[in-house]
Design a protein around this nucleic acid. Sequence first.
DNA 1: CCTTAGTCCTGCATGC
DNA 2: TGCATGCAGGACTAAG
Length: 289
Amino acid sequence: MRPPNSLNFLFSSGDGDDLMPELPEVETIMKGLKPLVEGKTLQNIKIFDARCLNKACKELTTTLKNRKIIRVSRRGKFLCFSFTDGSHLTTHLGMTGKLLRQLEKKDKKHLKATLVFRENFVLYFVDPRVFGRMRIWSKEEALLPNLGPEPLDPQRVFKVLKSLKTTRPIKTVLLDQQVLAGIGNIYADEALFLARIHPQSSFLEIKAAALRRLSQELPRLLEQAIKNRGTTISDYQTPDAERGDHQHFLKVYGRENLPCYRCGTRISRIIVNGRSSHFCPLCQESFTT
DNA sequence: CCTTAGTCCTGCATGC
DNA sequence: TGCATGCAGGACTAAG
């Protein structure tokens, strides 16, 4: 179906703009970048649009020169390049950010920065909607201090949820990166469907059994999506463009008015905390006061 | 502590 | 056909 290690996919999540790099997508990108950049030296970064820089580091171009990368990793939705001197470069791809090996014609007008490597290759940071950000961290700084733990271990997730006291809607809690890192709108909706919890349920009212279900289903879902190399939602596909496969496994996201795979009821869509939320009104129990 | 609303941005879908 | 409008999203900020 797909040639393994195909370059196109490794450096973007697809050919369309309709992707949201959440944990599984960023994990996939990270795995692709790892063999290319670990051990290599980032010679320079050329900035073409300063809006792609976190406001905490407007002078990234001048401060970052000739640093050797010892490790590429992912933390939540962030990609992290760690240098031998203890500093780091993080990228958040926002909605439409991509790191491309090749710059295609359609991407040229959205080129924000170029990462130039001493080993004679470059990565292009392209981002049409300009939600993505890059930032450099000195070795003295705590890296990404406001992120909650990774949500890949069921026991860890349950521990986090069990100790959390809030009346906010569960959907809002899942999107809060300080609670758990890496969950975005797609996987929040999917996890709540799998755990059969209504997205607007007041967190405090959710029964322990349901939280236990969520703690099991969320990591399982994310691992599955990683195996599927993430979700790509886009209406066309070029012959060579590699895409994730998880969009074929979505149960509720983007399925408003379509029948629930479990019970046949039409999937609903409501706005929770300004974010669209898809759920089955019959399968997903609403916990309220 | 909490919540809501606004901001950023542009491709795409819709409506006249 | 072309123009205007609205929508989508994550992270951050300000105000209540």
